[in-house]
Amino acid sequence: MPTSILGPYTRTITAVVLVVFTVVFFYTVRVSVRASIEPLFDWMTASWFGIIGTTWGAAFAIVEALHLIGLALIGGTVIASDGRLLGLVLADQEPGVVVQKTYRIFNWALILTLSTGVFMACGVAGKIYFLKVFWYKMLALSAGMLFEYGIRRPLLEKDLEDITPWVIKLTATASIMVWFTVGALGRWIGYSG
């Protein structure tokens, strides 16, 4: 018997509320908040990462490539696990096993992508601060992480046979869409500004 006020869906509802809050927050108070965090971007530009990123192009380019490797690994785990949930790949394997086995690689890929992303952001902090597409990417990334750790994983921890099939398919589709959106927005930063 669940003791939480929202029953077995506490984490899911909390994550959905956080995603909605992030979106509403982004579209309402973003201007004043953005102005208040400008010093952070100045600090990023002056940091060691910022100095290396702006003065040594080869280092920046290598980190960019590692960022893409991280993205490819995220893509691989997402397609393997969500593709399995949709019945598109590895259809003869147990879905629960495939999904569970991608968690560790996804975590490491996310760490690689985030750490290289921070380095790259320091190198171009003065530019990205003014780019709408950068903030859209941060929004998509936040939504993606909240979705992955707050909704998708808690949901898929349950016995998959107990979950309505369309909920599983919807979760898998949302997961693929959110991570490909993160990738596309990231690429578009390069064309803006």
Binding site: L68, I69, L71, A72, L73, I74, G75, G76, T77, V78, I79, A80, L90, Q93, V97, V98, K101, T102, I105, W179, F180, G183, A184, R187
Partner: peptide, 27 residues
Amino acid sequence: HVLTLMVSLGMLFMIDLRMLGAAFPNV
């Protein structure tokens, strides 16, 4: 071109990591 990395390279990495014993050991 870059986004297809997530599909092609993603799949290739999964296969390579499986061969190296770093992913899907029981598949």
